[in-house]
């Protein structure tokens, strides 16, 4: 009896067949072989598509250099002014020197995030490996820059002079810990947001498939599809905000390196 119930559950599981995590698998583009570091994979493909989209919007749309811009050029200029304004607001004019690096980060994350919303696509920013390296690059760059610009004085960011002398050593410990946790939170925040939204959409898509088959005329499809539409709308907001958050935090860290005296 018990065996029959388990068997039934197993066969049911086979028909439900929802695997929301399958979309995050790194697969080779050609063939089925092992993945070496140089193997072209779906990571390569979607980074390529993202770069193509960046070129399309930021280079091809601005090729006329019009004084009165068209639609594409307006968007490109808006992104430019937005990122530049963000750097100036957070770090002051000294931060403009690092505009190309920040812009590279923002464009790459924004475009891979948005492209990840396409059905059947692969979201590179949902990969811990990718966001982890991005966050580590930012962390190392900012830390090295801080020491290069200020030498040992850079350590002042851990020594809160506004606090009473007695609590300063404790605060310094907390500050050091929080400093080294930065790349972790920085990377997990982005990858986690991307992963969660895409997994939810996939789960609803699985429901839709099952309900479409299991109800007359497939009317059961309506509810999950409506849910998918709502989640996609929300996700569009989330992916843009997460690209923004990653960039803003990078600017904040850069500001620490430029002005360590709080």
């Amino acid at each position: 009896m018990a065996e029959n119930a388990v068997a039934e559950a197993v066969s049911e599981g086979a028909t439900l067949n929802i695997d929301p995590m399958k979309q995050f698998e790194v697969l080779p583009l050609f063939g089925d072989g092992p993945i070496y570091w140089y193997t072209p994979t779906n990571v390569t493909l979607w980074f390529g598509i993202a770069i193509a989209a960046i070129v399309l919007l930021m280079v091809l749309a601005t090729r006329k250099r019009a004084v009165v811009p068209g639609r594409g050029q307006s968007i490109a200029e808006m992104i430019y002014s937005f990122v530049r304004g963000m750097i100036v607001d957070i770090t002051g004019e000294q931060g403009v020197k690092y505009f190309p690096y920040i812009m590279t980060l923002f464009l790459l994350i924004l475009f891979t995030n948005v492209l990840g919303l396409l059905p059947m696509s692969f979201t590179v920013t949902a990969q811990i490996a990718v966001t982890g390296v991005l966050a580590m690059v930012v962390f190392l760059f900012v830390t090295i820059l801080g020491f290069v610009l200020h030498g040992p004085k850079f350590l002042k960011i851990f020594w809160i002079t506004e606090a009473p002398m007695a609590v300063r050593p404790i605060l310094a410990m907390i500050e050091v810990i929080s400093y080294f946790v930065r790349p972790v939170s920085h990377s997990i925040r982005l990858a986690g947001n991307m992963m969660a939204g895409h997994a939810v959409i996939k789960v609803f898509a699985g429901f839709a498939a099952v309900l479409a088959a299991g109800t007359p005329l497939g009317v059961g499809l309506v509810a999950p599809v409506a849910a998918i539409m709502a989640v996609i709308g929300l996700e569009l907001l989330v992916v843009v905000i997460q690209a923004y958050v990653f960039t803003v935090l990078t600017c904040v860290y850069l500001n620490d390196a430029l002005h360590p005296g709080h």
Binding site: W37, Y38, T44, Q127, A129, V130
Partner: peptide
Amino acid sequence: NQIFWLVVA
């Protein structure tokens, strides 16, 4: 693999 292609990108 991911890190390599990220750096390239």
